[in-house]
Design a protein around this nucleic acid. Structure first.
Lengths: 149, 149
DNA sequence: CCTAAAGAAGCATAAATATACATATCTTTT
DNA sequence: AAAAGATATGTATATTTATGCTTCTTTAGG
């Protein structure tokens, strides 16, 4: 079990069950035969940007980081519906073609959404180039963007 | 300075500046002449459901709680646009009239959104009664719901 | 006005979390 | 393949956060 796999397992776990503290994750992973210490989990949580949310019922629960806020999502959705032409990936790059004059706005929204997977964007008049942190991330970003259309 | 005022001040502070830890709030409030201990801040944070978000830059930052997620908001928006008839408040109650058969779904979404201001909901066939925690909260909920339409 | 009950907050401390440092492991370069 | 660098993780511990218990304050009821 490498770090990457552990991370995605942790993401699943916090969605599926109520993780009240880091030791819960240590215990659950232990039960699955994965030995890690609380220190590692603390670092994982930091990297995954998981948040500890006080719940109404009085306890606490670790959660995935907040998604893009509603307004931003609405803007992105509208813009894509209006101006999207095509999307493609190559290596760690995602290239989006838009109607002329719309790419800059699209790039700005993607920037403001502050995706973990994105290294940076460059926007021209009708093209946004998203530079992701890796190939896998590029594919993931492509999927996310397509989901908006 | 009572608890309510301190709470709204804390909400402002976490938006305006980077609060890395609870002691930061203790210090800032102290500078404003408000004496509280870390214990109180811990309880405030729990009540306000503030979250400690690991930031990209390596540190941590307290933030307001995540808004309703995008999917929930979308569902709520669609349902309101399709089925909304009227909304009104009286005291701590908000009464929403919908097309027959839609109130239950609406109530369920409002429940799942887990609004801080809401005490509970009761849904019939074409009516949702939202019981808020007070009059002020009811007016706030009314505004929020109208904003969706 | 008095008393009981509820709410708020301090103090002390327990519990949880983050991190400096050391070590091990994996990667890249020569 | 050895050396050098980067990455990952454990150990021990410092730092941060939550909470039991107590006291003080406010509110509600008689």
């Amino acid at each position: 079990m490498n770090k990457r796999d552990r991370h995605s397992l942790i993401r699943e776990l916090v969605q599926e069950q109520i993780i009240e503290k880091q030791e819960d994750l240590v215990r659950i992973l232990m039960e699955k035969g994965i030995e890690v210490t609380q220190a590692t989990i603390s670092r994982d949580i930091k990297e995954l940007q998981l948040i500890k949310v006080p719940s109404k019922s009085g306890g606490y629960r670790y959660n995935l980081p907040p998604e893009m806020n509603y307004d931003t999502a609405r803007k992105l959705e509208r813009l894509l519906r209006d101006a999207f032409i095509s999307i493609d990936t190559q290596k760690e790059f995602v290239l989006i073609k838009t109607q002329p004059g719309n790419a800059f706005a699209l790039g700005a929204i993607i920037d403001s959404a502050d995706y973990e997977e994105v290294f940076g964007t460059i926007s021209g008049d009708d093209t946004v180039l998203i530079i992701c942190k890796g190939e896998e991330e590029a594919l993931y970003m492509q999927r996310r963007i397509i989901a908006f259309i």
